[in-house]
Design a protein around this nucleic acid. Structure first.
Length: 414
RNA sequence: GGUGAGGUCGCAUAGUCCGGUCUAGUGCGGAGGUCUUGAAAACCUCUGUAGUCAUUUUUGGCUACCGUGGGUUCGAAUCCCACCCUCACCGCCA
């Protein structure tokens, strides 16, 4: 949620952010109106409670009974008013940072830079599904048999590739002060909702567990954000930097289209995710830091990529600023998303009640950021397609060889 | 899964049987002060969070919060119900 003081103090500013994000601007006036109503009811109820407490202290049982009856009538009105307010208020998205390019949709995202040259093939490159099948390392048929469509098995060098990529990311990032964490793959509703992963509706992302207040997490962001919920963190403990490992589960309801085949869009993958809690004044630098780490990873893997900054219309509710890295995907003939890093500023922190305590004792909401290091669906896709050879083998990127124990995946090996 | 103990204002602990004197005591930690050449010690004072109203800053009033959610009562940390979590032991198990 946004800062309510900002809403009351400068509604026009909030409106601009909401409009730039292509959200419904009428939310603002509605929220202000409901806020006013809510506060009126709150005054009524609090005055009655003050009376109740006074009579209780005086042991004035008659008057106490009278006030009690009145309270029983008015308290539901207050509850109702707060519920209506929260419903609208929680729909107001985070404001974009001022330097974010304004645009209506993903078509207006801005390319920031490119790194590396897409490889020129002197043969017809195969897609990762064909390569994986020929090498005997990737099997969607058996995945569909056992778990349904868009599930898969990795075998042999494919399984080793996933493990190597995670090792590689953890090695780089732990050297940079990110604390390695292995997180639960399930979380309570409060946490996946608080981080913005919706279980139902047109774009449901989370799978829910029957008869439990639990869902499969779509990313370790959920658990790493939940980790410090309801905490007050001393200023000198910040920034907290984590590199989390988890399996990620996505319903991908309604997500179909030309890139829905193969590893680009799957229901389960493994991910190494960066997560940072920091002071508001350092969050932009931390965002750059995460992006720099992501670029370092793809440079060391020698995968050509470009960096994209999301325009206001493509930020979603949580983000104040967001960058994606897109790696070159040869059989598509274009770049495809492999990482995403978001500065949520204080929006998530307010949802999860996470605060920072300054040296002078004052508390305020802190800033929270996340970013993909490696997702073991799309990164192996890019490696298979970019590193393939004419004979159907796939060269292993230098930095992964120490964990793979070999320099090439060949047909017939395991 | 079973049995037992427990969850209290940063940390630790008292209070819960017997509801009002708990506007939650004490110790530690933190801030300020006295004393001192300086420091330590001692002593004194202050020290939770959120909301809301009033106020020029300051500040003050009120409300809520003793794991969570309900209930009983004029009044609940305290009584009742349900749930969650922690610890110990038992069972099962990689």
């Amino acid at each position: 949620m946004i800062d309510i003081e900002l809403l009351r103090g400068d509604p026009e500013k909030v409106k601009k952010g909401v409009a730039d994000k292509q959200f419904d601007v009428s939310l603002i006036d509605k929220a202000l109106q409901l806020d006013k109503k809510r506060r009126e009811r709150l005054q009524e109820v609090e005055n009655l409670r003050a009376n109740r407490n006074k009579f209780a202290k005086e042991k004035n049982i008659e008057e106490g009974k009278r006030v009690k009856a009145e309270l029983q009538k008015l308290e539901p009105h207050l509850e109702e008013a707060e519920k209506s307010f929260n419903e609208v208020f929680n729909q107001i998205p985070n404001s974009p940072l001022p330097q974010v390019p304004v645009g209506k949709s993903d078509k207006e995202n801005v390319e920031v830079r490119r790194w590396g040259e897409p490889r020129k093939f002197d043969f017809e490159p195969k897609d990762h599904l064909q390569l994986g099948k020929n090498l005997g390392i990737l099997d969607f048929e058996t995945g569909a048999k056992v778990a349904g469509s868009q599930f898969y098995f990795w075998y042999g060098d494919g399984a080793l590739l996933e493990l190597s990529l995670i090792q590689f990311a953890f090695e780089i990032l732990s050297k940079e002060g990110f604390v390695p964490v292995i997180t639960p793959d399930l979380a309570k509703a409060r946490y996946y909702m608080g981080t913005g992963y919706l279980p139902r509706g047109k774009e449901a992302q989370t799978y829910e567990i029957k008869n439990e207040d639990l869902g499969l997490t779509a990313t370790a962001e959920v658990t790493l954000a939940g980790k410090h919920a309801d905490e007050v963190i001393a200023e000198d403990k910040l920034p907290l930097k984590y590199i989390g490992y988890s399996h990620c589960f996505r319903q991908e309801a309604g997500a179909y289209g030309k890139y829905s085949k193969g590893l680009y869009r799957v229901h389960q993958f493994t991910k190494a995710e960066m997560f940072i809690y920091c002071k508001p004044e350092e969050s932009e630098a931390m965002h750059e830091h995460i992006l720099a780490m992501e670029e370092k990873i793809y440079q060391e893997l020698a995968l050509p990529y470009r960096v994209l900054e999301m325009c206001t219309g493509d930020l979603g509710a949580m983000a104040a600023r967001k960058f994606d890295i897109e790696a070159w995907m040869p059989t598509r003939g274009e770049y495809g998303e492999v990482t995403s890093t978001t500065n949520c500023t204080d929006y998530q922190a307010r949802n999860l009640n996470i605060r920072l305590k300054r040296k002078d004792g004052k508390t305020e909401s802190l800033h929270m950021l996340n970013g993909t290091a490696i997702a073991t669906s799309r990164t192996p896709l890019a490696i298979l397609e970019n590193y393939q050879q004419a004979d159907g083998s796939v060269v292993i990127p230098d930095v992964l060889r120490k964990w793979m124990g070999k320099d090439r995946m060949v047909v017939g090996s395991k």
